[in-house]
Amino acid sequence: MPDTDTLPDFNRKKPFNPRRFATRVAVYSILIVVGLFTIMPLAVILLNSLRFNADILRESFIGWPTRITLENWDVAWSSACINASCTGVKPYFIASMLMVVPATLISTAIGLVNGFALTKWKMPFASVVFVAITIGVFLPPQVVLLPWAIALSWLGLSKSLAGLALVHIIQGTCFTTLFCRNYLVNLPDDLIKAARIDGAGFFRTFWKIVVPLSPPIIIVTIIWQFTFIWNEFLFAVTFSSSDFRPITAALMSLNADDTGVSEYGFGSAAVLIAAIPPLLIYFFGGRYFVRGLTQGAVK
């Protein structure tokens, strides 16, 4: 019998290796420099949102605040002027939310159903449909701009919240379908066969078996769709008007006031306000995002 009662010394130190140490130092130095460059723009904007505009203009665009104020945030939210209406970004923020949330949820739901039908149900021409959908992913958005304008006017949805949401739902379905298909393709076929023998049809199998197994990819898709649609600019500018304008389109007009003075202070605050929802999503969902992308359906 081996002697397992006396424990060996588990805390043995590895001998110092100068070459390894030097490599470490070099690698970390490079990472730190790259990291600083990456975080710099955000830091500058954040600091500027806390400075008086006069200070920014007088001192320099990049600089440490000499005096701190929260007024920029207040102005940006509720009284800054955009195209001569001085309401701040608040109504545009709300408009974006009302458009982005349903568009995200609906495109995610459609993507999941599509992914299931394409991989686990004997769907005719599944591979052709999948190729078509993948093409949609790689199609540059400029190409579909005009067709969408025509389609929306036919539908009577030109420059409306519902119209833009529709554009994003359909454009986004290409992405969500791709994501969900690639996730669900790993779902064991036997599960679906067992459900068929158990007498479950398409939607019952989907609802009782596929959806409960899909939270990782649902989270990934929601994060992706929400950030993409929220940040999207081209469609937002093209398919909006003074009645309905998402925040990305509104920000563009923020600086253009009649005095000709650049409003860096509340401009920075407005940009940050617009960036908060995607940042929060990443902050709380980022872990799931990485996990969902790397994880199969069932281990």
């Binding site: 036997d190 599960l191 023998i197 009782k208 197994l213």
Partner: peptide, 14 residues
Amino acid sequence: IAMVFQSYALYPTM
């Protein structure tokens, strides 16, 4: 008909 699969095919979330 009832069937038992090699992978068992138990529904993992139930």
